[in-house]
Nucleic acid binder design. Structure first.
Length: 117
RNA sequence: GAGAGCAGACGAACAAUCGCGUAUAAGAAAUUAUAUGAGGAAAGUCCGCACACCCAAGGGCAGAACGACGGAUAACGUCCGCCGAAGGCGACUUCAGGACAAGUGCCACAGAAAAGUAAACAACCAAUAAGGUUCAGGUGCAACGGUAGUGUAAAAGACUACCAGAGGUAUUGAGAAAUACCUGCUCGGUAAACUCCGUUCGGGUGCAAGAUUGAAUAAAAGGUUAAGGCUGCCCGCCGUCUUUUGAAAAAUCGCAAAGAACUUUAAGGCAACUUAAAGUCAAGACAGAUGAUUGUUUAGAAACAGAAUGCGGCUUAUGAACUGCUCUCUUUU
RNA sequence: GCCUCUGUAGCUCAGCUGGAUAGAGCGCUUCCGUCCUAAGGAAGGCGUCGCACGUUCGAAUCGUGUCAGGGGUA
């Protein structure tokens, strides 16, 4: 779990981010980007979504969520995704390809998709 | 040694680096330090409780669950003991295990007949008929107790012996029941068919229950005894209702450390369990915490699987390697 | 969290007040038809009734458990 100021919490913020429909996807993941920032001081907020449609078991869904979270944490720490800073919010949604994936696969997916943007 | 039966335990360990939730302490704050952080099923939501609120002026009809007996428990559809039945050579296992002799229904095809003191196709007696009987044949899951004999014209519980059931009496037991004797009493199956009997349940909603604080609870128009509420329905009772526009939808508690709690010991009890003493305090969010990488050990860095108000059960899923007791067979002494 | 419904042929559905060969439409295969195709006609195979256990003489149907899928509600 990321620290509290990096988490996206409000329901209205989710709706706003989804409605922009600014997204990038492959078979594993789908990333939604929110509005562009006015103030550079505000930190970018993240949310991770693994729907029950992906898989029935909570263990597998939790596993995917944790891997995504860890991957984002490490990328932020190493400053590899600087181009993310201009967005207010980012939602990462898992797709069916991510079932049973290891850390390497998830990490590469996120890195590639963000870099493309 | 082989094959079974029952019960039990375990649910990888250690280290390093980078991280997350909660609590406590320090600090103006950023933050820092310390402690701690997922199961035996957390699952399915199948039962039972606690807890909370709503409705409870009544009356009637429904309804649901359970079902040998005795106990345990907060309670249970759970557990323990025991009886009976069924299965197994046995250890042992399984059982929705009240009543069809209160009433109603159903029992296809076949068969005379599927339950009503029941047919007379063939058979038997007899000269024939009237009559007697349901033995034998045949049908069917099931044919009006079964087997063997006596008896008779031929037969039949008509009579006898054994077996099965029913009723009664006596003894034993806390009881289900068991044992013995008597009565020829013999009346089909099905209640996981309706139903009857007994027992239990005030009803409803589930922590998004609900409580407190804050905000709001205002205005306009229209309609009229219909709608709405009170238990599923009826009676009965209460009672204005609908539409449009506006605002709000946040925080704290519930709830996270104290109880039907857990561990050990002792006493009582066949046991479930109870009582007493000592010790322990052990997750807790609200977009929702337990992760990532590496190394070593084991067996290949293993199964099923992730807390959301809390407990007691049941059911289902579950890798590898184990432990104890018991039974049967075989071999050796 | 709570409530509720459905699993039958390749697909969409009947049958579910127990009685036997489990039906209908579309589809599929073969044949007829036509110069060829379509329409039309004839024939055919198509099923562990989600699974397990039970009740019953007999279960798709009744009961219990279980698995899977869908819907509603806050």
């Amino acid at each position: 779990m990321l620290t509290k100021n990096l988490r996206l919490k409000k329901y209205s913020a989710f709706i706003a981010t989804y409605s922009l429909n600014n997204k990038a996807a492959d078979e594993n993941l789908c990333i939604y980007f929110g509005k562009e920032k006015q103030d550079a001081e505000i930190s970018t907020k993240f949310a991770f979504v693994v729907s029950k449609k992906i898989h029935k078991r909570a263990v597998i869904r939790n596993r995917i969520k944790r891997l995504m979270r860890e991957s984002v944490r490490l990328l932020l720490k190493n400053n590899k995704i600087e181009n993310l800073n201009k967005y207010l919010s980012v939602i990462i949604v898992a797709r069916k390809g991510s079932i049973g994936a290891d850390f390497e696969k998830i990490n590469n997916s996120i890195y590639d998709l963000i870099k493309k943007k």
